[in-house]
Write a protein that binds this DNA or RNA. Structure first.
Ligand SMILES: [Mn+2]
Ligand SMILES: [Mn+2]
Ligand SMILES: [Zn+2]
Ligand SMILES: [Zn+2]
Lengths: 141, 141
DNA sequence: TAACTATATGATACATAGTGTCAATAACAG
DNA sequence: CTGTTATTGACACTATGTATCATATAGTTA
């Protein structure tokens, strides 16, 4: 398993590059996302930017996911979480006890998807994979 | 890729085995599920059993998913779909155009998850994987 | 800079996907 | 059959968004 390295995040620049206007609400949402250490829910982000409309927060998240700057993660239960996409393509571990999200890349995974491409009925246009774990911290308790 | 073969489905027996009571509403829900050829949403199932309470339909689906008799599939957008679990463990293809769901097993996939077990921080307790495709039928149009 | 125009905002209503409550009902053990 | 307990279904409620639309503003142009 390769832990993806850090990378610059300039979410506002991402939006600008795509031709969207740089508004104060978008700046506040983007700044707040860049401050998040862990994966977060949309509602949590809403609370972190009081005064910014809920619809605007959801709209901005959607733009960033479409831009590939944010990962959207399906949780075993409850609302999806989002995290900065630090690498182009990777997958996630989610601790089912504490909810902590980890990023990883693994050549085995990518080989598997390539192998699968020859087998499925049609063309693979995407995939989603989450690995649910009992993380070492939680297992220690 | 191995296409899982057919298998008997006796959803009511599954519930009975787990110690739940065999009620008329549960029989109607189970019968309706067994009639579904393709993956279905919870709301669709509700419509297929008029007179049975919505809460009962959702509760029955949840029991069957917990029993392993139904697969719950995350769709790219919208509500999850459910389909009969014809084999013990397998994964799904979902056509992003027509929504058609396919089951598959592939030794590459299982090897990949075994290999991953040695690499992640903690113990793998589950995983979810969906492969999104443009199916051959849709590609033909 | 000022005016213009398309884009974006946010209040609000609406939609969807469920879950919690609880009085009434019914399964099933004895 | 009776009693106990699981189950039901109406209803309210929560969570997670999306659609509408009057208002505001970013960025362009004069
Ligand atoms: Mn990630
Ligand atoms: Mn399946
Ligand atoms: Zn943990
Ligand atoms: Zn298709």
């Amino acid at each position: 398993m390769t832990t993806p390295g850090a990378q610059r995040h300039d979410l506002i620049a991402t939006l600008e590059d795509r031709g969207f206007r740089l508004t104060a609400p978008r700046r506040r949402v983007a700044d707040s996302i860049e401050e998040q250490r862990d994966a977060f829910t949309a509602e949590y982000l809403c609370e972190s930017v009081p005064g910014v409309g809920r619809a605007t927060v959801y709209r901005t998240i959607k733009l960033l996911v479409e831009s590939g700057a944010l990962c959207k993660l399906a949780m075993p239960d409850g609302a999806p979480k989002y995290s900065l996409a630090r690498v182009g393509h990777h997958h996630h571990t989610v601790c089912v006890r504490c909810g902590k999200v980890g990023d990883f890349r693994d050549s085995t995974v990518e080989r598997m998807f390539r192998s699968l491409a020859k087998e499925v009925d049609g063309e693979i246009v995407g995939h989603r994979m989450e690995v649910y774990i009992d993380c070492s911290d939680c297992a220690a308790t």
